[in-house]
Design a binder for these strands. Structure first.
Length: 204
DNA sequence: CCCCTGATTATCT
DNA sequence: GATAATCAGGGGC
């Protein structure tokens, strides 16, 4: 049994520690296999970079809050706010292995009342898919870990943690803030954004 | 396998 | 009006 994660450190410290832990909501549980750290006011790629305005206000709340936002008009993405309150660093949950509630997860990934027929490894691969499997809604923005959502220690075989650049963003594209477990089929493929800024623009 | 494109809406300019 | 921390599906190799 691993000790509870201390969410009051910066996201880049917390993110690798979250790998292998299980996020549960009701019957559905996910063992986290891929996460990304966002560093709030110090990070040009963070929604919180320009301060506690609009949707980003949630990231300035207390550690253990969930920051849920809508991406590309359709995908609900989940972050765990994990910094000291006010500095707004957070961990984006990018992928997990569904370890409980597979049938519910398939229904949530499905279309027109028909359950999706994805292999388990693909069900929660990618942040939009992970959000779908958890049944996230914008009303879940600001929810606290510990009640509706909870973080449980996974069985903890020591796994190799890999580190690399974050996916899909257009600022600070080469900062090594994406963490994933080696040899996990649920980890999403790396995609460099076609809008990636040049390195000189990342030093602010 | 890879690359390209459309979908869809909160937020920002 | 433009953009975006994405995804699924289509076409090409």
């Amino acid at each position: 049994m691993r000790s509870p994660i201390d969410l009051t450190h910066r996201a880049d410290e917390v993110a690798p520690l979250l790998l292998g832990w299980v996020l549960r909501r009701g019957e559905v549980a996910l063992r986290l296999t891929e996460v990304e750290a966002y560093l709030g006011l110090d990070d040009p790629a963070s929604h919180a970079y320009r301060g506690p305005r609009g949707r980003a206000a949630t990231m300035f709340r207390a550690p253990g809050c969930l920051y849920v936002y809508l991406s590309y008009g359709v995908h609900r993405m989940a972050n765990i706010v994990c910094s000291p309150a006010g500095s707004a660093s957070a961990v984006l949950l990018r992928a997990g292995e569904v370890v409980a509630g597979v049938e519910i997860a398939r229904h949530r990934r499905g279309r027109d009342e028909e359950p999706a027929n994805h292999p388990v490894a693909r069900l929660a691969s990618g942040p939009g898919n992970l959000g779908a499997v958890l049944g996230l809604d914008l009303a879940d923005d600001g929810a606290r870990l510990g009640v509706e959502f909870s973080l449980e220690p996974g069985d903890s075989p020591s796994r190799t943690v890999m580190v690399g650049p974050r996916t899909g963003i257009s600022h600070a594209v080469d900062w090594p803030l994406r963490f994933w477990l080696a040899d996990e089929p649920s980890v999403s493929p790396y995609r460099r954004s076609p809008r990636a800024s040049r390195p000189a623009e990342d030093r602010l």
